[in-house]
Nucleic acid binder design. Structure first.
Length: 461
RNA sequence: UCCCUGGUGGCUCAAUCGGCAGAGCGGGUGACUGUUAAUCACUAGGUUACAGGUUCAAGUCCUGUCCAGGGAGCCA
């Protein structure tokens, strides 16, 4: 007999004479002569109630059916005479698939702290909160692909292994097959000539440069893949391995870029509001009481848009006691970004046209020669959700910027070719997928929106 | 990496001025014919993160180490 997912069983139109459900027992309640099981199979947040009478042939196994055990239940789907649920399964056959020893199984029927659950990340998908988080993660991922597909973007796969040490987005993890013993890098010569790729190679910190090359042939592309940063960051917003969405558009400018970032953010939020109501409600009820209001504002209202220069004026006018003093030319610190998004605008804000000195070489130089066509989307509580720019398409300007930032033109010969042959205005951005999920769920630590997070000193599981 | 706070049964926490290590939940045993955070009774469970030190006496004070959380930097 085919298994019915609990999601479908709970949404049944009418009773069923025969049904089979499988899942993990969340709790068991006994009375004399019968037991109730709360069964969850991950298909949805809600458990289904199973009533097992002592007349069931295998009733004696019920003593071993503890929280965490897995069972296969056959029976009848009937209207529940009790309160709290519409349907329940009246069991006629019970198979105990896997026991979970009550003395050693770490998950209890009570609430656990996130810190404790992180130490048992292999078991936390069986909890309400993490089940909901990972279902939302899946649905948000679908919404991303759906958004781009509807707009004529092609999903491209950029390399994870890279020989480019010029991506410039942070410290990189080295990839090597050389033995670890006694390996020290010599002062001169090519230490890596005997390595797998014959040169120094790393895990990617961004697919952007390759995405730019692909957009110059496919028109509109996006990547959605893992990204690796070897920074020793110890914050609730950083991970060493995270997933990033990087769209790139040919024949587009900074305004198109901002429009795309705003539309995409709204699309994913709206999709999750429409399709994950039950899971989202858990977060709105138990994690962040203001979540729904914030998400609804985000979807309804246009994002605020200011230039960097205007943002600096706002920060100066705020007359706050900044830990980092504000002046034109300084980089925006966390306290500044939070003030703009959380206190001044009270909604997502896009800041554009940053001083060229504090931004990457590939961002397009504005006519003032002082600023570049960069744009950051700052959202309340999360900070920088999106960082993007119109790319510098003019060969001479790009070469000058590479030199200015002390880099070697030869390292970029293939990237520069895209400007040498049929260069076009283009723009794109990077969005941290986990930060989007934090925004969607109200979860405050990035380690809790990734099933098995990688952070400094943490690569268990 | 820097700053702050913390580490006590399986989990969440308490322990006054340095003076007998406790509770709730969870577990076990039993009771209960519709429970739903089930309820009720009984019960077991501790090298107070680790290593030193001060003291008649250390969970508590001092030093070092490790780990965790928060803030900052770096960034998405």
């Amino acid at each position: 007999m085919q298994r019915t997912q609990i999601l479908d069983a709970l949404n049944a139109e009418g009773p069923k004479a025969e049904i089979r459900v499988c899942g993990w027992v969340r709790t068991r309640r006994d009375s004399k002569g019968f037991s109730f099981l709360e069964l969850n199979d991950g298909s949805c947040l809600t458990n289904i109630q199973v009533i097992v009478d002592e007349s069931v042939p295998t009733y004696q196994v019920i003593k071993d059916v503890h929280t965490g055990a897995s069972v296969d239940v056959r029976g009848e789907l009937v209207e529940s005479p009790g309160k709290g649920q519409r349907w329940e399964v009246r069991c006629t056959e019970l198979i105990l698939l896997g026991v979970a020893d009550a003395e050693t199984f770490p998950l209890q029927k009570k609430r656990h702290t996130d810190e404790f659950l992180r130490t048992i990340a292999h078991l936390r998908p069986r909890t309400n909160k993490y089940g909901a988080a990972f279902r939302i993660r899946s649905e948000a991922s679908y919404a991303v692909h759906n958004f781009y597909r509807e707009r004529g973007f092609f999903h491209v796969h950029t390399p994870i292994l890279t020989g480019s040490d010029c991506e410039g987005a942070g410290e990189m993890f080295r990839v090597t097959t050389l033995p670890v013993t006694g390996a020290t890098k010599p002062e001169s010569g090519n230490y890596f000539e005997n390595d797998f790729f014959g040169r120094e190679s790393s895990l990617t910190v961004s697919g952007q440069l390759e995405a730019e090359l692909l957009t110059m042939g496919l028109g509109r592309v996006y990547t959605f893949g893992p990204t690796f940063r070897a920074e020793n960051s110890n914050t609730p917003r950083h991970a060493a391995e995270f997933w990033m969405i990087e769209p790139e558009m040919a024949f587009a400018d900074i305004n198109d870029d901002m429009d795309l970032g705003e539309a995409m953010t709204k699309h994913v939020v709206q999709h999750v509001l429409d399709h994950c109501a039950t899971d989202l409600n858990l977060f709105a009820s138990f994690v962040d009481k203001e979540l729904m209001g914030r998400l609804e504002t985000l979807v309804k209202e246009p994002f605020a848009r200011v230039t960097y220069t205007e943002a600096i004026d706002i920060l100066l006018a705020a007359k706050k006691d900044w830990e980092y003093p504000v002046s034109w030319g300084c980089d925006l610190q966390t306290e500044h970004e939070r003030y703009l998004a959380e206190e001044h605008f009270r909604k997502p804000v896009i800041v554009r046209d940053y001083p060229k000195e504090i931004k990457a070489f590939y961002m397009r130089l504005n006519d003032d020669n002082k600023t570049v066509a960069a744009m950051d989307v700052l959202v309340p509580r999360i900070g920088e959700l999106i960082g993007g720019s119109q790319r510098e398409e003019r060969l001479d300007v790009l070469e000058a910027r590479i030199r200015e930032t002390g880099q070697n033109l030869d390292d970029y010969w293939w990237y520069l070719d895209s400007r040498r042959f049929g260069s076009v205005p283009h723009a794109g951005f990077g969005m941290g997928f986990e930060r989007l999920l934090m925004m969607l769920t109200g979860i405050t630590n990035i380690r809790d929106v990734i099933p098995f997070p990688r952070t400094p000193n943490n690569i268990e599981f």
